[in-house]
């Protein structure tokens, strides 16, 4: 690939998704964009690049961006964060929580739905300890294609075997020919929305918990900082942020700090918490802008 072609694709993808493509990812450009070119009736990558350069047709630019953003995911990915969610975060959320307001959880960059459905399954498994509190799960991704798949909740045998304990599979999935579909009752717990993390996301309302795992890792430092700043503004002061195993706030933001003993779990630092009082009444007002369940 010519350097100017790589530069064209690199800047297109970064501008639209924040994803930073390095030279080492050249093979990914080829392996993902050649099938896309064929699907659109083009002979190869050269033709695709020419189309991008000359016509800049919106649907093509979107398709290229979506093809390049990784959609690697699995149920209960990394196991531990979901244990931390069940055993540490959920009890903390429920403790002293005013009845009435829903506890809101956001799965950012949810890909094909495994993360929000894993969260929903945790809530069902822990239902007896949740004291009847209402929960709302919002899941977003920038790709329309993966969101469509996520909503249907249909997974291959390979996908359901990565991370999903067999007892959970039996309890919350039904077999449909060669595929496995998440129960309608679990699907109903998750609201899927299209959202680009590079754009303003305050319209989602405020959240008690944000899962933003394995997505910032693909962003440049300035973009990471921007996203952390926005996250801080949409999170409730005593909320929790989950980051991926290889992600950190160190050297990027002072807004969040690690929760000792619970890897991957972060909280807002008290000294920079926004200065609203943390009475439940105020929180209800803050969350009121969010759509009800």
């Amino acid at each position: 690939m010519k350097p100017e072609d790589f530069e064209l694709l690199r800047s297109l993808v970064e501008e639209r998704s924040g994803l930073v493509l390095t030279k080492e990812k050249l093979y990914l450009l080829e392996s993902r964009l050649i099938p896309l070119a064929r699907k659109r009736g083009m002979a190869g990558l050269d033709k695709l690049i020419r189309e991008i350069r000359t016509r800049r047709e919106e649907s093509l630019l979107t398709a290229v961006t979506e093809a390049m953003t990784t959609n690697e995911s699995s149920f209960f990915r990394d196991i531990k964060p979901f244990e931390n969610f069940r055993k540490f975060v959920l009890p903390k959320l429920v403790e002293g929580h005013a009845a009435g307001r829903a506890i809101r959880i956001w799965s950012a960059a949810c890909s094909t739905g495994q993360e929000p459905y894993s969260i929903a399954i945790c809530l069902r498994e822990e239902a007896a300890k949740l004291g009847g509190h209402r929960f709302e799960i919002v899941a977003t991704d920038l790709s329309v294609e993966v969101l469509e798949k996520a909503k249907v909740g249909m997974y291959s045998q390979f996908e359901i075997q990565r991370g999903l304990p067999i007892q959970i599979l039996m309890k919350y999935f039904k077999q449909v020919d060669e595929m496995w579909q998440v129960d309608a009752s679990i699907r109903a717990m998750v609201k899927f929305r299209k959202l680009n993390l590079l754009q303003e996301f305050s319209s989602l309302g405020r959240f008690d918990v944000v899962f933003c795992r394995n997505v910032l890792i693909y962003f440049g430092k300035a973009t990471k900082k921007l996203v952390f700043d926005r996250l801080r503004r949409i999170m409730l002061t005593d909320g929790f942020l989950f980051l991926g195993g290889a992600e950190t706030v160190l050297g990027i933001t002072d807004a969040f700090c690690r929760v000792d003993g619970y890897r991957g779990v972060y909280q807002m630092l008290s000294e920079i918490k926004p200065s609203w009082p943390s009475t439940s009444g105020t929180k209800e007002n803050l969350a009121a802008q969010a759509p009800g369940p």
């Binding site: 045998q157 390979f158 075997q161 990565r162 991370g163 304990p165 067999i166 007892q167 599979l169 039996m170």
Partner: peptide, 27 residues
């Protein structure tokens, strides 16, 4: 599903459906 349920009832701890790969075994 009937085979998987039978296996669990007989005391199986987990269940892998072939074909498998290293990721599935590890998981």
């Amino acid at each position: 599903v009937p085979h998987i349920r039978e296996a669990i009832a007989a005391g199986a701890n987990e269940y892998i459906m072939k074909p498998f790969d290293g990721d599935i075994i590890q998981s």
